[in-house]
């Protein structure tokens, strides 16, 4: 690690002469950046580099119980990744999930944000907190809670759950979508709402003078102006969808329908517990690249639309 030394920075004289002030300033910058740099390197950059290194290794051994040796294997693990149909099935599954769940969630978030911003609604503070509250529940706890709500015999809504099995192979993906939506609608709503608050009120006044009603203002003025915020939340949501882990992993103890490769991240987790670290690392790298490409493509395509 090449972390700039910070030990001597505090020793710099409080009032430096002109020719030394540049150096002192540089040291001060280093001092302030150091905490971030250390954490970024230790928990972000180095692990990523290490995962890439791991993904290029393969295991060798002799005999049935020979000790494993890691040797350079080139792209052997990546070959495995692209042949692994279960992994790609799981990628397809989360893409389907995202295609349905993300628009629903962002639609709801936008609707709630507009309602909070509308002059008609009373008790805004209460609703703002109420919509946001699920986000304060940790994902695992939310999944456990919903697991009990879905469960046929333990649910307080037994009349519904004993007739419709939300945990069956057909419905469990959408049961998870419901949990994710419940948790994150409020969070996305806040981002959009904050963006609504930043719109200058003169625009509304002008619109009213021109005879626009509230619905027209929302549709013609507010929504176009918060598109950047919606794009931001969409990118976060795409990333979050591809990384789905906690909800399906937790629901596995409620449902027989979630297998060990239900989502890409779950497949990585399962592979790492074989343990086949090299293949798990290759999966992770491919998944990270896919996430990056998808987010990038989405950003590029929406930016073009906005500027047109």
């Amino acid at each position: 690690m090449t972390v700039p030394s910070t030990a001597d920075a505090p020793k710099a004289p409080p009032v430096a002469r002109k020719n030394r002030s540049a150096g002192a300033q540089r040291r001060a910058v280093a001092l302030f950046i150091a905490p971030f740099a250390v954490l970024f390197l230790a928990f972000y950059a180095i692990p990523i580099v290490y995962a890439i290194v791991q993904s290029l290794l393969t295991v060798e051994r002799e005999g049935t119980f020979g000790a494993p040796r890691q040797v350079f294997g080139g792209l052997v693990q990546y070959e495995q990744v692209f042949q692994d149909s279960a992994f790609w099935t799981s990628v397809g599954r989360v893409l389907l999930f995202g295609a349905v769940q993300v628009p629903i969630m962002l639609g709801l978030a936008l609707l709630f944000a507009l309602l909070l911003d509308s002059p008609l609604l009373k008790g805004k503070k209460f609703f703002r907190l109420a919509f946001f509250a699920p986000y304060a529940v940790p994902g695992v706890i939310a999944a456990i809670m919903w697991g009990f709500l879905y469960s046929p015999s333990l649910s307080p809504f037994g009349a519904v759950t004993s007739n419709v099995d939300f945990l069956s192979a057909e419905l469990v993906l959408w049961a998870i979508a419901n949990i994710v939506t419940w948790v994150y609608v409020g969070y996305n709503m806040l981002i959009i709402y904050a963006s609504l608050l930043a719109i200058p009120t003169e625009i509304y006044e002008a619109a009213r003078l021109d005879g626009a009603n509230n619905v027209q203002i929302a549709w013609r003025i507010k929504i176009p102006l918060v598109v950047p915020a919606i794009i931001l939340t969409a990118v976060f949501s795409i990333i979050g969808t591809l990384q789905l882990l906690a909800e399906p992993q937790t629901l596995r103890s409620f449902s027989s329908a979630i297998n060990s490769t239900f989502t890409p991240n779950l497949a990585v987790y399962t592979t790492a517990s074989v343990p086949n670290y090299n293949l798990a690392a290759a999966f992770s790298v491919v998944l990270a690249l896919a996430t990056f490409i998808l987010s990038f493509v989405f950003l590029k395509s929406t930016q073009r639309k906005v500027t047109q």
Binding site: F43, Y44, P47, Y187, N188, F236, G240, L245, Y269
Partner: peptide, 15 residues
């Protein structure tokens, strides 16, 4: 979904 992302990134970093 930033926190979602952050959480999973953390898990990834830890593993």
């Amino acid at each position: 979904m930033r926190a979602h992302y952050g959480k999973v990134t953390a898990a990834f970093a830890i593993s």
